[in-house]
Design a protein around this nucleic acid. Structure first.
Lengths: 161, 161
DNA sequence: TGCTCATTGTGATTCAAATCATATCCAACA
DNA sequence: TGTTGGATATGATTTGAATCACAATGAGCA
């Protein structure tokens, strides 16, 4: 198990077809690979896109700390709950069929942090479509692009049904 | 927070477009809505497709038990870890583009328990495609159908690259 | 028994995202 | 300075899943 002090580390896995899937994006203060505490044969790859500082936590020590320090255990439960919630949100978002709606939802959730290519990968869309959708949205006035590669929603327009 | 004693309860949420997404499927021994322990405004709907018995756990009491009973806290961490793992697996599976590969992966993971319609919904595919893929696979001999509505993999054929 | 209804199943068509191709911009770097 | 490579961007084409339409099956039930 790992604790991220600085930077950002992505937990990735590749499908049989070879595409890379980001399972989790951990920032400063996040812990990584908690499930490894209970299972031995869990395998993901970790990628640091920027320089990062990571603290390695020994499995046995963490398990020990959990029995002695209830606050520590509760903190862990809290982290995991947050992760579960974010996974649920992601699942919901990925269920959106229309590329435009998905991009809008992704923007609303603040996923557009790095490059458009990375954003597209998070959304499970090809980057071409995302570029197209973004320029359409900018043309429509729903999205602003203050700078190259920076996009943000104009406002939360209420669900037009 | 809830504890499922018997039956099965699904945690669902509907997207703006109106489609229903199953966030979590809880069986006997599972707990439901753990994130609600730490956040007040989390909303999902729970659906019991069969008759089920559910124990309601008071938020304050659970939080109290966590500080006093370390084993309880650890158990909770374990549950949540397992959930996180299964979400990651689902994410990986949903990233598979080809409908056929996705159906195969779903079968391998043992998702085809109830009806084909439910299976298709879990896979994020239309039931028509799933029916088609399944009959193709049966024709190809990759999948067996011992009975109407029952499908299982012939064997784990090693990743044909 | 006949009726209803959900599930199963298949065919035809549409449509939107993937893919392929290509070009520009820009930062890092030698 | 020129060169490389990644991100940005857009156009043309293809593909495959969604959608629409329609049957057949089978269980529950009056």
């Amino acid at each position: 198990m790992f604790f991220i002090e600085q930077g950002e580390v992505r937990l990735v896995r590749h499908t049989e077809a070879g595409q890379l899937v980001t399972m989790f994006r951990a920032g400063p203060g996040d812990t990584l690979a908690e499930p490894s505490l209970f299972s031995d044969h869990y395998h993901c790859d970790a990628i640091a896109d920027r320089d990062s500082t990571v603290r390695v936590l020994d499995k046995a020590i963490v398990l020990g700390a959990m029995t002695e320090d209830t606050a520590f255990a509760i903190g862990l439960v809290q982290r995991l709950s947050a992760q579960v919630q974010s996974y649920r949100r992601k699942q919901e978002l990925l269920a959106i069929r229309s590329a435009q709606d998905r991009v809008l939802a992704g923007l609303a959730d603040g996923w557009m942090t790095g490059t458009v290519v990375a954003f597209a990968s998070d959304l499970g869309l090809s980057h071409e479509v995302v570029f197209r959708v973004l320029s359409d949205l900018v043309r429509d006035g729903q999205v602003e692009r203050p700078a190259r590669g920076v996009y943000c929603l104009k406002r939360t327009d209420q669900a037009a049904s």
